[in-house]
Design a protein around this nucleic acid. Structure first.
Lengths: 139, 139
DNA sequence: TTTATAATTTATAATAATTCTAAACTATTT
DNA sequence: AAATAGTTTAGAATTATTATAAATTATAAA
């Protein structure tokens, strides 16, 4: 459980002003036991339900992108029409449950080391992400 | 080099009527030496330039989705606002050049076997895809 | 061959996610 | 307390994609 004061400090340290809206989003995202995967829409709904306060959609976009830039959130590559974000910013991989449209974390140990044997001149590897798509098993 | 006749046969075999538009799209996509990665927009531009004939945007979407369903194209998961497709439907992985917004194939051998050590009850693995993001190397 | 049918194409409208804009507001600095 | 720089906001604009329904075309049947 992170206190409001701690969120305020964290925001200030990142030169993000600790506004009411940003603190609310911090509480929605980071006061959780486990990794949280979400779309912008998910987040808006959570905030609208959780608190009765309204928050502008633009602010949610702004804040999520600001947090991503600061390294507090990671965007997960999925061939979907909406962006998915993850509060787990460590190197790890994902299951994607197609039917449920939900992400599930895979730890490094669940996948094993991945060694890329090819290089492109002038380019360096920024990230290596594995997406494992899951189907219903009608065996 | 695949002939028009061959495309017609292939389409008929998939119970897709060999229309002028579908044949044109086949020629744009499959008459290539190497794998082709594209967005719908790329494909529209190619067809508009290559032939002076107009083709409806809706038809391009319809056809690409039909081809995907038949297994002639694969969608590549990228956290982008537009969908990327690949004419290489074998199991393989990708580099994604962030600056150029271009995909580059990685063969199985470039990545090595990937062994997923976790299972989810009632779900089976449909695909395993590795996306390696590339940055400019300002060394 | 013609006719009937079912599939396909098409322009356009509708939808949905995201970004932009510029005015109002707020946290911080002076 | 005033000045400033950053932030929020509603709504408009943009972009990718999907839906619609009429016109067209490929195929099957007669």
């Amino acid at each position: 459980m992170t206190t409001t004061r701690e969120f305020v400090n964290k925001l200030r340290k990142s030169s993000l002003r600790p506004t009411k809206q940003r603190i609310k989003i911090c509480e929605a995202l980071f006061n959780r036991e486990t990794t949280f995967h979400f779309t912008i829409n998910d987040l808006v709904k959570i905030i609208e339900n959780e608190a009765n306060e309204k928050i502008s959609l633009a602010t949610v976009y702004n804040t999520v992108h600001a947090f991503e830039k600061k390294g507090y959130l990671k965007e997960i590559p999925i061939d979907s029409n909406q962006s998915y974000f993850d509060t787990n910013v460590t190197d790890h991989h994902h299951f994607y449950d197609i039917a449920e449209k939900k992400l599930i974390d895979l730890e490094q140990g669940d996948v094993g080391p991945i060694n890329i044997q090819k290089t492109i001149p002038g380019k360096k590897i920024k990230s290596v992400e594995v997406l494992v798509k899951l189907d219903t098993d009608n065996h």
